[in-house]
Design a protein around this nucleic acid. Structure first.
Length: 142
DNA sequence: GCCAACGTTGGC
DNA sequence: GCCAACGTTGGC
């Protein structure tokens, strides 16, 4: 069971937009970066990830679930690009700001800190547990 | 809005 | 296959 983090600019497609889809899944399309795509290729059905607001907000705002494994990106005119489908699971009771993440020595190795431009990234189990605690989800992603 | 960092493209 | 030019991302 692996954990992930998905970034999006909230004025383009934010947490509220994903929640508005309700039970409908959202194709996480538009990713045009090999590292991000390769991360999506590794995702398995039911795995969880954080939803992060980049550019504005700069905080982890919710938990999402992978509800379709990697498949061709319907918005690409090119077979290289693939993506997973996501749905919103729940909001963070307390959004976790990037500044707080950077202040934690245990989180200094996160891709979010080290490779800020990577839009789909892995999160270790330890990081996941800690971020859940910081966000007011003491029982993890339940 | 600026700019540094990074990824991608394309000429050689 | 190298590397300069260019475009994009995202924190500040």
């Amino acid at each position: 069971m692996a954990y992930w983090l998905f970034k999006s600019e909230p004025d383009t497609f934010g947490w509220a937009d994903l929640v508005a889809r309700g039970a409908q899944v959202e194709e996480w399309n538009g990713v045009r970066n090999y590292q991000a795509r390769n991360n999506m290729r590794q995702m398995q059905l039911g795995e969880r990830g954080f939803f992060y607001h980049s550019r504005m907000g700069l905080e982890i705002v919710g938990v999402v679930e992978v509800c379709a494994e990697c498949h061709p990106d319907s918005t690409a005119d090119d077979l290289r690009w693939e993506c997973v489908d996501l749905r919103a699971v729940q909001p963070m009771p307390r959004a976790v700001p990037l500044a707080e993440i950077k202040a934690q020595p245990e989180l200094a190795n996160m891709a979010l800190v080290r490779s800020p431009r990577l839009s789909v990234q892995p999160v270790s189990a330890e990081e996941w547990a800690m971020l859940c605690r910081m966000g007011g989800l003491p029982r993890g992603d339940l």
